[in-house]
Amino acid sequence: MIPAKFDYVRPSSVDEAVAALRDAGEDAKILAGGQSLLPVLRLRLAAPSVIIDLGGIADLRRIAEDGDRIAIGAMAPHHDVMRDDLVKQHVSLLSQATATVADPQVRHRGTLGGALAHADPAGDLGAVALALDAEFVIAGASGTRTVPASEFFVDYFTTAIGEGEILTQVRFPKYTGWATHYEKFNRTAQAWSMCAVAVALRIDGGSIAEARVGLTNMGTTPIRASGVEAALVGQQANEDSARAAAEHATEGTAAPSDADAASDYREHLARVLTGRAVLAAAG
């Protein structure tokens, strides 16, 4: 791989990283696991003048309980997120979705923060963060701010992270005991999603008390399937209610068309997968 020339810095704290970003100006690029950035550099689709590698900031890899939240450092690799006991117990949907990301090599390198900051609409973790109302902690020259998931994803490859800012942490509310499932559909076993559905249900006495549903690759950003959620609440979790709710899956979507799936097929998939995800979550 021969990318265009760049300078490389490896700060050891968030403050140093923010300072390096400020010094480098708009041509700088942050490097997390490099699993999306390196292919882009290799094809020379981007030619940053400075690469700021967050790999030297140990703090950013930590996964910890923080009151009623699970706080995951932006640099936590997928592999860690997927196997972490806290995540499994309280945010099982994230663990399940992360397990579907690529292959073990990519999961050892790629990070939660990198994936969310990259905001590829075909990425699997955005729909989960959105459905679960995660919060994004973003550090910049003027300090730290917190952005809700509903405001984080702006457009195709665009998030609320501003110039000179770094995503440091993603905080998930606890969904302990929720029934969850991530239903992914792809072309080959380890490929990106053509379409996927993230479902979390709080089931109380056999009926669905709360529902959270997110869609992957059905628009330029992850999409919250509010129509499906509304249709599920108060229902028994069964084939009929799942199918009826799934009819709402394409509301508010703008399915892309590509060689693997033209939009009509993608919409069809969204409905089928939503039904399956609800049933699988409900067990």
């Binding site: 999306s36 292919p39 075909a122 080959t188 990106w192 690759n217 590509d258 799936a261």
Partner: peptide
Amino acid sequence: THSPGAGLGSI
């Protein structure tokens, strides 16, 4: 049209 796949997602 390009479709999502290994590495580049939907780029």
